[in-house]
Simulated assay, not measured.
Amino acid sequence: MAETALIVGAGAGLSASLARLCAKEGMKIALAARNTDKLGALAAETGAQTKACDVADKDSVAALFSWLDGTMGTPDLVVFNPSKRARGPLVDLDPDEVLAATTVTCHGAFLVAQQAAKRMLAAGHGTILFTGASAGVKGYPQSAPFAMGKFGLRGLAQSMARELHPQNIHVGHFVIDGGIRTESDTREAPGENKLLDPEAIAETYLQFHRQPRSSWAWEIELRPWKEAF
């Protein structure tokens, strides 16, 4: 039976590369995003189904998984990509914008993970992957909300891994340490390799999903070979 994958926060870049790779591997795919209009071409290319979802809204997340129950069933793989930023000096930050940012990046991940875990525990298996950032291990100046959200995301993933790995639910957190290349990127010269290739990241996600249980990881850091760390 074909595996199923749910990509939350789908769009261009990493999510699109993941969807294409999963389709190539014969998986059935669901793509979730606040705005599904932008997903038409990708859905047509990968044979994916789409569903609107606001990860900041618990009812919207619950509706996403109820929809999955009636269409594709329990996903074998769930990938959480959404994040939201609020930048500026600490004393100038709008508290409401900070709350919105951390709600999407961290609490939204919890909502998705909780719904996924309930179903995967009943099924007896599954993989939940979180897209993190270097901001989740080191807080940068004038970027407190992003650090708060990504630190929280990493803590969620670590706690889940310790709780759920013994129950055959593989949990992974990916520290993406560097910029991800886009189709029309001007941040690097041809062959410079300063940016991460989204297709290469997707390959690592798939490898993580397929790790033997005797050697499960819970976290991997990915960076271009020229990135300082």
Rank of each mutant, 00 (worst) to 15 (best):
Leu99Tyr: 02
Thr71Tyr: 05
Lys226Asp: 06
Pro166Phe: 08
Gly9Asn: 03
Asp69Ile: 14
Ala113Val: 01
Ala16Trp: 00
Met120Cys: 12
His170Arg: 15
Leu93Ile: 13
Pro141Met: 06
Asn81Pro: 02
Ala33Pro: 09
His170Ala: 15
Thr74Asp: 09
Glu219Arg: 04
Trp67Asp: 04
Ala109Arg: 01
Lys150Arg: 11
Asp177Gln: 03
Leu68Val: 11
Ala56Phe: 06
Glu203Leu: 11
Asp96Ala: 06
Lys226Gln: 05
Ala52Leu: 02
Ser143Met: 12
Ala144Asn: 10
Ala43Asp: 07
Ala19Asn: 06
Arg162Phe: 11
Ala123Glu: 14
Met148Ser: 14
Asn35Gln: 06
His107Asn: 08
Leu21Gln: 14
Cys53Asn: 02
Asp76Pro: 04
Thr204Pro: 03
Gly47Trp: 07
Leu121His: 05
Ala101Cys: 06
Gly73Val: 13
Gly136Glu: 02
Ala147Val: 09
Met148Gln: 15
Gly73Lys: 15
Glu219Ala: 05
Ile220Asp: 00
Ala144Ser: 15
Thr74Tyr: 07
Tyr205Gly: 03
Pro141Glu: 07
Pro75Met: 10
Ala117Ser: 14
Val8Met: 09
Leu31Asp: 04
Thr105Gly: 11
Gly139Leu: 00
Ala161Val: 09
Leu93Phe: 09
Lys24Ile: 00
Pro166Val: 09
Gly179Thr: 01
Cys53Thr: 10
Ala44Gly: 13
Arg223Ile: 11
Ile201Ser: 00
Cys53Lys: 00
Gln211Leu: 15
Leu222Ala: 03
Lys150Cys: 07
Pro190Leu: 07
His173Cys: 13
Thr182Gly: 15
Pro95Lys: 07
Val171Met: 01
Glu219Gln: 08
Gly88Phe: 14
Leu64Trp: 03
Ser134Ile: 10
Ser214Glu: 14
Phe80Tyr: 15
Val112Cys: 09
Phe130Ser: 01
Glu163Phe: 03
Glu45Met: 11
Leu42Ile: 12
Phe146Trp: 04
Gly149Ser: 11
Ala109Asn: 04
Ala161Glu: 05
